[in-house]
Design a protein around this nucleic acid. Structure first.
Length: 420
RNA sequence: GCCGAGAUGGCCCAGCCCGGUAAGGCGCGAGCCUGGAAAGCUCGUGGCGGUCUCCGCCUCGGGAGUUCAAAUCUCCCUCUCGGCGCCA
C-alpha cells in the first residue's frame, strides 16, 4: 500500500508508474475522486460533531422548553451526522479498494520495460554443461529411476500434484536441509510457521486482492493455503513496533506453497509448474535506509545456494512491467536445465520497501521518544525445491541413466554419491 | 462442540452495575533541581482532517441498535485465556 499522502501530492508520478507496469489509471482516478469528497465531508462531519459535543454537555443544565428545543436541534444534527457517516463509510470503502489495488512504486534503478523481454541479465555464473549424449529431461530421468510418481499424485489429489519416492524424496529432503543450514550460517533465524493463513495476512503482504484467484481458499473458515512463506513469515510481526536495535531481523523458513495456477494450461510436463511445492524462504525486516543494500545481500545469499550446488545460473533484474505487485525492485534467479534446454526461475528476491509494512502495520521506533515509522520488508526464495530438483537431475545426469549427487548434498544423503 | 473469564493509547490497568470531556501507573523523552547522577517535581508521549507554531474530530476488539449524548445500556459477531468434551 502506498502512502496516501504521496498519492494526493503527486498523482502524476503514480500515473506514470501504473503505465510502466502496464496498468490503467482507473483506480487512481477513482481514488482521487473519492478521497476529495471524503475529505470535504469529513470536515463537515467534524464541525457537526463539535457542535453536538458542545451543546450536549449543556443540556443537563437546561430546563423546560429551552431543553426541549436543544434536544430537537441535536436530534437533527445527529441525523445529519449519521447520513454523512454512511456516505463516508462508502467513500472509505472505495478508497480502500483502490489503494489496496495500486502496486508498489519501483525503485529508480529498475529498468522501465513492458515484459520479460525487457528484463536485464545482471550476472551469469557457471558454464552450460556439455554432454557426450543427448541429455534427458527431468521427468524422463525421474521415471526411469522411479523418483517421481505423477499418476498417484493425481489419484490422491488431482492434476498438478505429484509424489516423490525413494531417492527422489530423499533428494528433496537433502536439498531442504542443505538450504536451511546454509541460511542459518548466513545469519538467518530458522522458523516454522502455519501453512494456512488468514485474510489479514494475505492482505498484509499484498496477495489479496491482487492474486486471490491464484490461491486456495478454505471457504468455511475464510482461510488460505499458504501461497508462499513470505505471507506467514512477514505477517509474524503484523501490528508490532520494533525498537531500533532489534533491526535487522532475518528469517528462513521451509514451508509447502500452494498455487491454483488458475487459467494456466498444464502444458509443462514434470514438476516445473505444480499446485504444491516446497520452498525455503528468506525474509528480512530492515531499517528503511538499509533496504536496497539488504536486497543485494539477500540475492547473494540465494545465489550462494546455487553456487554451492554447482549449478549454472543467471540473475535477472526485472523490468517495471514484469515485476510483482508488492516489489519495488526484484531479482529473479534462473537455473539452467540442460535437458529441457532452458532457464528455470528458482528464486525471486524482492525489496518491498514500506509497501507491505504499511499494509501489515509493521513499524519501528527510530529513538525511544520518536514516532514510529514503517520498516522495510524483503523476501526471497532460497530456493524453490521442484525446479532446483529439475536442475540437479538434468545437470548431474550420467550417460548410464544414473544421477551423481552434488558434493554439497552428500552429507545430507548419508554419503550417497549416485542415484540409480 | 459446551461452560466461564477477558479484549481500554508503546506496555499495565481503573472506569462499566448507576450514560455526561478516558483516570492512574510503567517505560521513554524534555525541562527544573544537582558538581554529576539518583530521587523528586512539571510537561510531553495514538490516528485522521484542516485555513497546519494552532484548531477540530476520532480512538475503549468489530458491527448494529437505543439516546440530545455510549468505554458505560441492548443485540449480533470475532479473537484470546481457562475448564470440560473430542482427538493424532
Amino acid at each position: 500500500m502506498l502512502d496516501v499522502n504521496i498519492i494526493r501530492q503527486d498523482p502524476e508520478s503514480i500515473r506514470t508508474m501504473l503505465r510502466n507496469r502496464n496498468q490503467t489509471d482507473e483506480r487512481l482516478n477513482a481514488f482521487l475522486a473519492a478521497d476529495g469528497e471524503w475529505r470535504s465531508l469529513t470536515e463537515r462531519g467534524n464541525a457537526l460533531r463539535k457542535l453536538r459535543n458542545e451543546v450536549s454537555v449543556t443540556i443537563p443544565k437546561l430546563n423546560g422548553s429551552d431543553k426541549k428545543t436543544k434536544i430537537d436541534e441535536m436530534r437533527a444534527v445527529s441525523d445529519e451526522i449519521a447520513t454523512i457517516d454512511t456516505k463516508l463509510a462508502e467513500l472509505d470503502g472505495i478508497r480502500d479498494e483502490c489503494v489496496l489495488n495500486i502496486p508498489n512504486m519501483p525503485h529508480h534503478s529498475v529498468p522501465v520495460g513492458k515484459d520479460a523481454e525487457d528484463n536485464v541479465v545482471v550476472m551469469e555464473h557457471g558454464s552450460i554443461p556439455k554432454f557426450d549424449f543427448d541429455p534427458k529431461e527431468h521427468f524422463e530421468i525421474a521415471e526411469s529411476l522411479d523418483l517421481i510418481d505423477f499418476e498417484r499424485g493425481v489419484k490422491v489429489a488431482g492434476s498438478g500434484f505429484y509424489v516423490l519416492k525413494g531417492d527422489g524424496a530423499r533428494l528433496e529432503r537433502a536439498l531442504i536441509n542443505y538450504m536451511l543450514d546454509m541460511h542459518h550460517d548466513q545469519g538467518y533465524r530458522e522458523i516454522f510457521t502455519p501453512a494456512v493463513v488468514n485474510r489479514t495476512a494475505v492482505i498484509g503482504t499484498g496477495q489479496y486482492p491482487n492474486l486471490k484467484d491464484d490461491m486456495y481458499w478454505l471457504e468455511r473458515d475464510d482461510m488460505w493455503l499458504n501461497p508462499t512463506a513470505e505471507v506467514p513469515v512477514t505477517n509474524l510481526h503484523q501490528d508490532e513496533i520494533f525498537e531500533r536495535n532489534e533491526l535487522p531481523i532475518s528469517y528462513t523458513a521451509y514451508l509447502p506453497s500452494f498455487r491454483r495456477e488458475a487459467g494456466r494450461h498444464s502444458d509443462t510436463r514434470g514438476i516445473v509448474r505444480v499446485h504444491q511445492f516446497n520452498k525455503v524462504e528468506m525474509a528480512k525486516f530492515v531499517h528503511p535506509d538499509d533496504s536496497f543494500t539488504a536486497l543485494e545481500t539477500l540475492r547473494n545469499d540465494a545465489e550462494e545456494v546455487i553456487r554451492g550446488l554447482g549449478l549454472p545460473y543467471r540473475t535477472l533484474l526485472l523490468c517495471t512491467g514484469d515485476m510483482g505487485f508488492s516489489a519495488a525492485k526484484c531479482y529473479d534467479l534462473e537455473l539452467y536445465a540442460p535437458g529441457r534446454k532452458g532457464w528455470l526461475e528458482a528464486s525471486s528476491c524482492s525489496c518491498c520497501t514500506d509497501f507491505q509494512a504499511r499494509r501489515a502495520r509493521i513499524k519501528f521506533r527510530p529513538e525511544p521518544h520518536l514516532k514510529s515509522e514503517f520498516v522495510h520488508t524483503l523476501n526471497g526464495s532460497g530456493l524453490a525445491l521442484p525446479r532446483t530438483m529439475v536442475a540437479v537431475l538434468e545437470n548431474y545426469q550420467n550417460k548410464d541413466g544414473t544421477v551423481t549427487v552434488p558434493e554439497a548434498l552428500r552429507p545430507y544423503m548419508k554419503g550417497q554419491s549416485i542415484i540409480g
